[in-house]
Simulated assay, not measured.
Amino acid sequence: MQFAVDYPGKIKGFVAGDYPAKSFVIKKDWIENLIARYKVHQTWEELYHAISPNKEIPPEEFAERKEEFYVKKEDGIHARVHKDLPMKLQMDSEDLDLTYGLDQIEGPVLLLRGEEKGTLIKEEEVLEFRRYHPSLKEELIAGSGHSVFDPKEQTESIFKDYFASLK
């Protein structure tokens, strides 16, 4: 959104992934929770039990996707993202309302929303998007909260259609 504000005319369209036209100060407890996940695990099974104690991720899906987020090294299995990143994000985060930037976007606007607990965008924020872009295309992502880029097959199809419309 900040890019749209800073560079009007360079935006042909906009995709919001379950996020309002605002940014927030990231809470310290969220960062601490995230950093706690950086424990080095000795086996994939140990890692699976640590990140999904209630089997929220089926074992088959974990086996298929584990190397997207983790890497096996000599001393164990590590998260792929450096553990300083969350702290840097928290330090740089701030409360900003960038809703006014929505009028800088001239092309189609796509809003991906989670349909379950954990979605970050509220109905009144969807209405803000619609106020600036009456033709807003809103897609509910089945089975997701804030992580709207999973399931990949559904979002890939949505993105293909969206980007084809920009040509």
Rank of each mutant, 00 (worst) to 15 (best):
S157I: 04
V126I: 13
F129H: 09
I105H: 10
P20D: 02
I77K: 04
L89D: 08
K167V: 12
A16Y: 04
L102C: 03
A164T: 10
V25R: 14
K73S: 06
S135W: 03
N33Q: 12
P53F: 11
Q90K: 15
D161V: 04
K88A: 14
E124H: 15
E128G: 00
D75H: 10
A4R: 04
R65N: 12
E128N: 11
T119D: 11
I26L: 15
K10C: 04
K167E: 13
R131G: 01
E106K: 15
I141Y: 11
D92L: 11
I105Y: 12
P20V: 00
E45L: 00
L127K: 15
G145C: 06
G107M: 08
F24V: 02
V126K: 09
L111Y: 09
V126A: 03
P8G: 00
E138C: 04
D97R: 07
S93I: 03
H146Q: 03
R131I: 00
F159M: 13
I105G: 08
K73C: 09
P53W: 11
R80S: 15
D75S: 05
E138I: 12
E32K: 15
D103S: 14
V81D: 03
L34H: 01
N54R: 11
D18H: 02
V15T: 03
I51R: 06
S144Q: 15
S165P: 09
E123D: 13
V109Q: 02
G143P: 06
I105R: 10
V81H: 07
E106P: 02
L110N: 05
E61W: 08
D84S: 13
Q104S: 05
T43S: 14
K152R: 15
S135C: 02
Y70L: 05
H146S: 01
H41T: 00
L112V: 05
I158Y: 07
P59N: 01
V71G: 02
H146K: 03
E60S: 06
N54M: 05
G76R: 05
R37C: 05
P134W: 07
E64H: 12
S23A: 09
G114S: 04
K152G: 13
L47Y: 01
V148R: 05
H82R: 08
G13A: 06
D92K: 14
F159P: 02
I158T: 11
V81T: 14
I105Q: 08
F129C: 03
Y7W: 14
D103A: 04
L98G: 01
E139L: 00
E153T: 03
A63N: 11
V71D: 02
K10Y: 12
E106F: 09
S93Q: 07
E124N: 13
N33I: 00
V5G: 05
E64S: 10
S135Y: 07
E116T: 08
S147Y: 10
L98N: 04
E32F: 12
R113K: 15
K27A: 14
Y19I: 07
Q104I: 00
D75K: 12
F69L: 04
I57V: 12
H49W: 02
K167P: 09
I35S: 00
G145Y: 10
P58A: 08
H41S: 07
D103N: 13
D161L: 06
G107A: 07
A50R: 01
A50D: 09
A50G: 00
L89I: 07
H146A: 02
V40K: 08
M87K: 14
E125M: 01
K83V: 05
I35V: 13
N33F: 11
